[in-house]
Amino acid sequence: MRSFYHFMMRYRGSHKNSEERRLADWMFEDHDFPKQSSSYDEVSRYFEWNSPFSGALRVFDHLWDVYEREEKE
């Protein structure tokens, strides 16, 4: 299973200015982000303590659902 970070890199640098892009760009720049993790608990705890912008947890929850669906395929 690939990490959530790896999944999120598809949104990085997108020409579309979206919250998904903001989150992916922030994850890329944050050297302490758990980049190898595929654990919801670990990643969500990190976001709870280090939320980069208002609404980031909502965006994360939505993208985690997408990530899980794709990883099950």
Rank of each mutant, 00 (worst) to 15 (best):
Met1Val: 09
Met1Leu: 06
Met1Ser: 14
Arg2Glu: 13
Arg2Asp: 09
Arg2Thr: 11
Arg2Lys: 12
Arg2Val: 10
Ser3Arg: 06
Phe4Met: 07
Phe4Tyr: 15
Phe4Asn: 03
Tyr5Arg: 02
His6Thr: 15
Met8Gly: 10
Met8Ala: 11
Met8Ser: 11
Met8Ile: 08
Met9Gly: 10
Met9Asp: 08
Arg10Phe: 04
Arg10Tyr: 04
Tyr11Leu: 09
Tyr11Glu: 06
Arg12Asn: 14
Arg12Gln: 15
Gly13Asp: 07
Gly13Cys: 09
Ser14Asp: 11
Ser14Arg: 12
Lys16His: 12
Lys16Met: 10
Asn17Gly: 06
Asn17Pro: 08
Ser18Val: 05
Ser18His: 07
Glu20Asn: 13
Arg21Pro: 01
Arg21Thr: 05
Arg21Gly: 03
Arg21His: 09
Arg22Val: 03
Leu23Ala: 04
Leu23Val: 01
Leu23Thr: 01
Ala24Pro: 02
Asp25Phe: 08
Asp25Asn: 13
Asp25Arg: 03
Trp26Asp: 05
Met27Ala: 10
Met27Ser: 04
Phe28Ala: 12
Phe28Asp: 07
Phe28Pro: 03
Glu29Leu: 13
Glu29Ser: 09
Asp30Glu: 15
Asp30Gly: 04
Asp30Arg: 09
Pro34His: 05
Pro34Val: 04
Pro34Lys: 10
Lys35Met: 05
Gln36Phe: 15
Ser37Gln: 08
Ser37Asn: 13
Ser37Gly: 08
Ser37Leu: 10
Ser38Val: 07
Ser38Ile: 08
Ser39Pro: 06
Ser39Val: 10
Asp41Thr: 14
Asp41Ala: 15
Asp41Leu: 13
Glu42Gly: 02
Val43Arg: 02
Val43Pro: 02
Arg45Val: 01
Tyr46Lys: 02
Phe47Leu: 05
Phe47His: 00
Phe47Asp: 00
Glu48Asn: 02
Glu48Ser: 04
Glu48Ala: 04
Trp49Asn: 07
Trp49Cys: 03
Ser51Gln: 10
Ser51Thr: 01
Pro52Ala: 01
Pro52Thr: 00
Phe53Leu: 03
Phe53Asp: 01
Ser54Ala: 14
Ser54His: 06
Gly55Trp: 00
Gly55Ile: 00
Ala56Glu: 05
Ala56Ser: 15
Ala56Arg: 02
Ala56Val: 02
Leu57Ser: 10
Leu57His: 07
Leu57Glu: 11
Leu57Ile: 08
Leu57Val: 04
Arg58Gly: 11
Val59Tyr: 03
Val59Lys: 05
Phe60Pro: 00
Phe60Val: 00
Phe60Met: 01
Asp61Thr: 01
Asp61Met: 04
His62Asp: 14
His62Pro: 03
His62Gly: 13
His62Leu: 14
Leu63Gln: 05
Trp64Ala: 06
Trp64Pro: 12
Trp64Cys: 09
Asp65Val: 07
Val66Thr: 03
Val66Asn: 01
Tyr67Cys: 01
Glu68Pro: 00
Glu68Arg: 15
Glu68Asn: 08
Arg69Gln: 14
Glu70Asn: 11
Glu70Asp: 06
Glu70Gly: 05
Glu71Asp: 12
Glu71Ser: 14
Lys72Asp: 13
Glu73Ile: 12
Glu73Met: 09
Glu73Gln: 13
